[in-house]
Design a protein around this nucleic acid. Sequence first.
DNA 1: CACCAGGCAAGTA
DNA 2: TACTTGCATGGT
Length: 222
Amino acid sequence: MQSATTQRLTEMYHLLLTHFGPQNWWPGDTEFEMMVGAVLTQNTNWKNVEKALENLKKCDLLSLEGIRSLPDHKLAEAIRPAGYFNIKAKRLKNLINFIVDRYDADLPLFLEDGTETLREGLLSVKGVGPETADSILLYAVGRPIFVIDAYTYRILRRHGEIDEPVTYDELQALFMDHLPEDPDLFNEFHALIVRTGKEYCRKKPICNQCPLNQWGRVPPNS
DNA sequence: CACCAGGCAAGTA
DNA sequence: TACTTGCATGGT
């Protein structure tokens, strides 16, 4: 007998998957590109991130050693389209330094780290918060970690699933405690939530054709 | 013109 | 602990 929450989340997932189909996230050719993208997309439209990633790619700098060898101001210039370029250049360098210091600059060694303290290690990097850390853990490392973002709060609140205030960790636990520990499921579910948010649940909601209308408990406004 | 985007850290009370 | 502010480009 599964819990009511499990049923509710599972229903949400299947509604979204049926409506949108698989999203095939994370958009990126390599684990390293995913990690860089996770930092660059902080409070930033993904389209702008793609331009920044393309700038790095065309100069063959989208690698650990490529970014490591690049001066901060050069890195900032390359990622300019992603916004916050000065601070994000430092954040990328911080993340690179973390891998250099703790994993001897060996990216595969980092990706194979199976220890329980990996998340807190990532969180110790200045510029890597819970969403960025969890995106890296799920989409690059392949851990069964559920990623929470602004859309997740918005959608669940509009559908009456949560009362604010809810912390990141609490909302993450809501998903992780009630769904099987499956990286592929968490991957697809988060991607579908972002897709839904982008198309139907921005600050100016377009709720009319949202697939979650059938999910029930849809408030007319808010 | 205003508003927003797949956050985070640092400052203030 | 609980707010507030800076960071910045590009699209609607």
